[in-house]
């Protein structure tokens, strides 16, 4: 494949850029993603997963069944914050940084 070929169309990452980070030790899709932003765009790697696998295969010789899938995440497709939000006002796990400040005898601990 021509090295200028775009692999991640969302972030416009080329074959060459991926080749460079593989040369720097990156082996999995996720390694490549963190170093190049490949797969961080709106499609969240839906389009480039198979293309990146081809590049890894071409550059490292690894068979496809040894090239793991990228980590996939929720939401399964983009969703507006207002759709996600609920009317609940209790936060069991989500805090504010100020919450962590503890006062003891009227002084900061």
């Amino acid at each position: 494949m021509d090295k200028s070929t775009i692999i991640c169309r969302c972030e416009e990452i080329s074959y060459e850029e991926i080749e460079e980070v593989i040369g720097n030790g990156a082996r999995t899709f996720d390694d490549i993603k963190r170093l190049t932003r490949c797969g961080m765009g709106p499609c969240q790697a839906k389009i480039c997963t198979s293309l990146v696998a081809k590049v890894i295969h071409a550059e490292t010789g690894k068979p496809f069944h040894e090239i793991p899938l990228p980590r996939m995440r929720m939401p399964l497709s983009p969703i507006k914050l207002e759709t996600l939000a609920t009317s609940s006002t209790s936060f069991s796990t989500v805090k504010s940084v100020l919450d962590e400040v503890e006062l003891e005898d009227g002084k900061v601990r």
Binding site: P78, S88, F91, S92, V94
Partner: peptide, 28 residues
């Protein structure tokens, strides 16, 4: 990740910055 915490986090974000409501989340 869990939708439980994702929704709580969305609530926190909109509580702090209401104008984020139309913004789309692409990943958690």
């Amino acid at each position: 990740t869990t939708l439980d915490v994702i929704q709580e986090t969305a609530n926190m974000a909109l509580h702090y910055v209401p104008s984020l409501k139309k913004a789309k989340i692409v990943r958690a």
